[in-house]
Design a protein around this nucleic acid. Sequence first.
RNA 1: UGGGGCAUGGUGCAACGGCAGCACACCGGACUUUGAAUCCGUGGAUCCAGGUUCGAAUCCUGGUGCCCCGG
Length: 383
Amino acid sequence: MVQLYQSVSLIFEGKITRMDKVKNKNEIAIAMSGGVDSAVAASLLIKNGFRVRGYYMSLKPWNCRERDKPVEQDRAEKIADKLGIQLDILDFQRIFKEEIIGGYISALSQGLTPNPCVMCNRLIKWGSLLEYVQSKGIGLLASGHYAYLQRDENGDVTLHKGLDENKDQSYVLSALPQPVLRHMILPLGNLQKKEVQALAQEFGLSESVDRESQDLCFLSGFKQEDFLRENAKELLESGEITDQDGKVLGRHSGLALYTIGQRKGLGIAWHEPLFVIDKNIERNILIIGTKDKLRQNALTAKDANWISELPQTDDRRYDIKIRYKSKLLKARIHHLQNREFTVIFDESLRDITPGQRVVVYKGRKCLGGGEIVKGMYINNLKR
RNA sequence: UGGGGCAUGGUGCAACGGCAGCACACCGGACUUUGAAUCCGUGGAUCCAGGUUCGAAUCCUGGUGCCCCGG
C-alpha cells in the first residue's frame, strides 16, 4: 500500500500538537473536482485510515438546457460513490463571480495580467471552502495539488515543490499564509503524475475520472475575447499598436487581450516576430517590439507573503519563478521591507509581467512571493 | 502633360529563361488548472492583354496601378 508521507502521518498519529480548530485528527475534508488527482488523493487518505468527506464546489453556471449538472460534478459524484464517501455540493458561484471574476476583470482594467488560479486558491479553495468545512467541525482540508507540505512538531508548515517537478503546483499555493497551510493536507506531494495515474488504475478509478484534472477555471473553454465580451465589454475598446518610438503599426481590439511578451494576435507582418513589450493604459496603446526589447533583469513586487522564513537580502541567490510554468532563474532579493521587495536576476530574461506572481524558492522549499509591480532593466549591475 | 523605378500568397521580400521559395501574419495541433511563450503542421501568390521561346515571374510591346525626381 502507498504510504502517505510523513507529515501527513504525523497528524494522523496525533504527533503534531498545535493544531487549532482540529478536533478529530482522523477526519478530513477533500476538495474534489472530478479529476484524477483529487480522486487518487481521496483514495490515499481513505486507505490510510482517515474518515474522508468530499466537497465539490460549483463555481460557475453551466448550460442547464443540455444537462442537469456539469460533467465534472457528475464525475465527482461517481468517484465519491465508488470510494464510498459522502460528497457535498457547495454553491460558491456568487463569491466566485464577485471575488475571482471581479478581481480578474478589475486587474485587467488596470493593464495587469492577473493569475486567477492564485486568487482562487487563496480566496476560494483555501478560503471559503476551508471556512466552510471548519464550520462543519472538520479541521483539515485536502486537495490533489502537487506540492509537499512539511510539518514540524509544533505544526509549523513549510511548503515545498511537489516531487514531480513537471507537475509542481507550489506556485499557485505560494500566496497562502501559514495559518491556512496548517490546515492543509496534500497527499500527492511525494508522488509522480505517472504514479498517480497508476494508482487510479489500481483503485479502479480510471473509468470515472478524466485523464487530466478538471480545471475549475472560468476561462476554460472560453476564448479570452468571448469571455470579456460577455463580462466586461468596456475592456474591448480598440486602439493603436505602436512601436517604442510611437510609430503606428496597426490596431488592437482591447488591451486586456494582450499580455507582456505575447506574440500571437498582433496581426502585424514584419521580417521578424513581434512581441508585446508594454501597455499604455491611459492612452489605450499597445507597444510592441522585437524580442530583444523584452530583455529585463529586475522587478519590484508587492503584497509579499512569506510562509516560513524571510529571504535574506545579502548577495545569496534564490531560484525565482515569474509565472507558473517559467523556468527557475537565479536571483537575489533586495529592499525587502513591509510587504515589498526587489528581485535582481543574474541574467536578463523576458516577459516580466505586472500582475503575475513572483515566487521565491530555496532549493525545493517555497518561501513565498509577491505580485509583480513592474519589470525593469538595470544597466550597471553592481556585484 | 518631362525623366526614372516598381508590380510575386494577407504583409515584406527571394527565384542564371528550367519544379515559384523564405520571413512575418492568419488557421490547426501539441504543451498547460492564469494569460502567455515554445514546438509541430496545413492552406494560400507571379497586375492585365498580346508576343518571343521546347519552356516566361524573368525577355519584348501595349495597358493599368503605385512610387521617386522635375530642388
